[in-house]
Every structure is written in structure tokens, then in C-alpha cells.
Write a protein that binds this DNA or RNA. Structure first.
Length: 219
DNA sequence: CTAACATGCATTAAA
DNA sequence: TTAATGCATGTTAGA
């Protein structure tokens, strides 16, 4: 398919992988320790190594099926991704954190009741490459450091680990994880949502979207 | 109740 | 025919 394209910039795309993977390991441990994180849609390690968390999705059966399309959470999509004016959506290039491939997804929406459903299409090869199953999680980041690549995607296998009642897992992570971020602040309060009809990149209220100006086009 | 969303399914396109 | 597309509908969590 079109999704797999060698990246000319991948060697320059140095996000200090070793350090980053180390931080990921700690973040995973943090998740395992904090059941409250289940309801938290933010990432405990935002802005790590120049990568700003955008959204995540726990994959369902229908996400990893043969259709190659992933439903994205509406609130985060509307606040953190480019606003879509047409159903056809836009093409989104994302660099794979693990493989360095650049995937060409299509980000679009479907009309649904009086609202919208946000979809990431052409995800079949990505799903297959990582062998993603229901319960696994994808996370989308924005690279704030380099021009050229807009977003980065990460596939994370779910931690299939039940903390037993007797286990002394308490305290194990406490030295690493002093605090748990409170998921009380809504994205809508942090960011000005872009109204429909406003082309992302032209609205200063949506200045954070201007980094998306490359790698997609309207249809 | 409303709204998000997981999935069903009719329609269209490709083979 | 089979596969992909685009929306509809059922389910579920939250207000």
C-alpha cells in the first residue's frame, strides 16, 4: 500500500531514542501502578523529548479488524487535531516511534446523528506491523522540535498484569512516581477549539495547529 | 435523558 | 462474486 514510505529524514530525526524508551518504560510502570489512570486521557509524560501528547486510544475489536480504520475519541480529536471542514478529511503523515516508518493515514469524520465520528483510516498496515490486539493502545504525539514531521505515533501493547491483592506492589513505583496528575482540567479549557470553517493555520487562536500545516491537504 | 462510540449493514466499487 | 465505503443503529457511560 501507500503507507510504507522510507523516510529521508529518519536519520536526522533524532529524538534520543534510548532515553525516550527509558521514559516510556517508566511511564508504563506508572500506569501499572495507578488504576486511576484508566480514566485519564492525558499522558503522564507530556513534552518528553520534544514530543507533546495529543491523544490516545485503547483499541477495540473493530479498530484492529480488517477494515483498517480506527475510531478516535471525539473531544481530543476536535481540540487537538486539525479541524475538518469536509467529510473527506485530510491526509496525515505520522512517524512511527518504533520503526521510524512514516505512515500515511487519512483523518476524516463521518456524520453521526447530529454530530461526528472521527476516524483514522488506512491503519491496516500499521495494525499488522505491530500485531495490535484489542486492549492495546495507540498514542499520537506532536513533534514540537523539528519541522517536517508533524506527528508521531506509538503502539503500546497492553500490560496484561493483574495486581494481586497480596502483592506488595505498592511502594515499588512510589520512588519513581511521586504524584499522579489530576485529570480534572479539560482540554476545552486549555485550548481554544477551532470553529468549523476556520482553516487551521490561519487562525491565531489555533496557533498550535499551524505545525500541522505540512503533510496534509484538503480534498 | 444525551452523547460517544463500537459495530452492523446497505450501498457502491472493484475484481 | 468479493471487498471497500459511508452511514445507521444499538449499546453504554455519563449528566
Amino acid at each position: 500500500m501507500d503507507a510504507m514510505r522510507p523516510s529521508a529524514e529518519s536519520s536526522e530525526m533524532d529524538i534520543n531514542e534510548r532515553q525516550f524508551l527509558h521514559r516510556i518504560k517508566i511511564a508504563d510502570a506508572k500506569r501499572a501502578n495507578a488504576s486511576a489512570m484508566a480514566a485519564d486521557r492525558t499522558d503522564p509524560f507530556q513534552n518528553v523529548d520534544g514530543l507533546r501528547f495529543v491523544l490516545q486510544k485503547e483499541l477495540k475489536n473493530s479498530d484492529v479488524g480488517s477494515l483498517g480504520r480506527i475510531v478516535l475519541p471525539k473531544r481530543e480529536a476536535e481540540t487537538r487535531l486539525p479541524s475538518l471542514v469536509a467529510r473527506g478529511g485530510i491526509s496525515l503523515m505520522m512517524e512511527d516511534i518504533h520503526t521510524k516508518q512514516v505512515w500515511a493515514f487519512k483523518y476524516r469524520f463521518w456524520p453521526n446523528n447530529k454530530s461526528r465520528m472521527y476516524i483514522l483510516e488506512n491503519a491496516g498496515d500499521f495494525i499488522k506491523k505491530h500485531g495490535l490486539q484489542p486492549g492495546d493502545v495507540i498514542m499520537i504525539y506532536k513533534n514540537e522540535e523539528k519541522d517536517g514531521f508533524i506527528k508521531v505515533i506509538r503502539a503500546k501493547k497492553e500490560i496484561h498484569q493483574e495486581p494481586s491483592a497480596n502483592a506488595d506492589y505498592d511502594g515499588v513505583f512510589d520512588t519513581i512516581v511521586p504524584e499522579i496528575p489530576a485529570p480534572t482540567v479539560r482540554y476545552s479549557e486549555l485550548f481554544q477549539p477551532c470553529s468549523d470553517g476556520v482553516y487551521p493555520g490561519y487562525d491565531l487562536n489555533c496557533a498550535f495547529l499551524s505545525d500541522f500545516s505540512m503533510g496534509y491537504q484538503d480534498e
